[in-house]
Design a protein around this nucleic acid. Sequence first.
DNA 1: TGATAAAATGACCAGACAGTCAGTCAAGTG
DNA 2: CACTTGACTGACTGTCTGGTCATTTTATCA
Lengths: 210, 210
Amino acid sequence: MSATVPSKEDIVAEFRRRSIIQAACHVFGEKGFEAATVDAIAEAARVAKGTVYLYYASKQAIYDAVFASGMAEIERLIGEQLAAAGSARAAIAAFVTVRAEYFQQHPDFFRVYVAEIARLVAASPESRGACQAALDRQTRALQKVMEKAVAAGEVRPVDPEAAALAVFDMSKGLIGRRLLLGTRGGSHKDITFLTDLIWSGLKPARGQKK
Amino acid sequence: MSATVPSKEDIVAEFRRRSIIQAACHVFGEKGFEAATVDAIAEAARVAKGTVYLYYASKQAIYDAVFASGMAEIERLIGEQLAAAGSARAAIAAFVTVRAEYFQQHPDFFRVYVAEIARLVAASPESRGACQAALDRQTRALQKVMEKAVAAGEVRPVDPEAAALAVFDMSKGLIGRRLLLGTRGGSHKDITFLTDLIWSGLKPARGQKK
DNA sequence: TGATAAAATGACCAGACAGTCAGTCAAGTG
DNA sequence: CACTTGACTGACTGTCTGGTCATTTTATCA
């Protein structure tokens, strides 16, 4: 247990890493992985190109760090909100809302995210690992909620995984459209519609048992 | 009206264009736009690089042609199937099925498609044009079906556009997952689930009027 | 068959970019 | 103040690739 106080060097290094990640998220989001240049990232981070390579071994390593950091943040938020939700319906609404709001506040990362999902579809099975795992953890959190709701008879007996994935897909589409249309915050009408739609689809038929 | 019979030259030119588009779809699907090389496309089409440039002005032009040709095909299929469907429920099922089957039979194009949608989110508003229009035509076809169903009281009074987009998003997610998991044809369980889910969410509450 | 035109080829070029490394300089140390 | 250290810099290099075009091959026809 070496709980040393972070030295000044550590602080500076942490600051640099953060700056580079932020700058890289912006550049990757705007241009995509291939078209983004390390020069542009360095400029956006206000350091020389050589400095970037002091903190990250390659362009790919920068990209990986950007993706991992964003996904970790979202995962944390989803975990918090699902734990706080009182009912299955509230959990669904929270899941959609958290994702929508996070991505709306970080449009650059949303672009990185969408591009990465696209890459996932084209990728070879073995290189899929980390990204797929991060996605799985997100949907599995929602899936757990669905399982409980089915067991409690709160929703009709559907496949919890399929239902969770459906919510996931719809929220992704919703976010994409919001960013395309440039909708600024406000109107939660679409989130409400989506939650209602899925809830109507899930609730037990009147009088239905088990 | 110059209805000339296609000459032999036209036939050969048409054949070359097709070969190049097919080869390009494969290469773009595997590597993405930037990482794909014109050399690789030429090799896959079994022609020299110079020949590719006899038929298309640039790498971008090849890509555009690939995307346009695939989207036109899907649009045609959707139009046919929606026209043939007897009910709103059947139309929803047909919409999902057509897209799922087309993309499953053309996984390369699906990758191009997904990457292009990702690019759309990052793109500047003015460069969005053609791609967005193609997508709009697809969802609008389904939206029309929804409008009629709402008017007929076949489904409860929801926003037809939002409902159509929800179906669209879910079918896209479903296709992506099928390709990721490498599901071979067969099992339509997921399509059935999805159709049921959305239908339960849409049908009028028991006893509800108008 | 020989002449002419059209189509196809692939070596070549220019520009761009990831990654390197010799040199700079500000902060710390005795 | 003289000296050391190491974070930082940015010019440079090797490689790669989109696009060109002089040359070769193939098809057409008199």
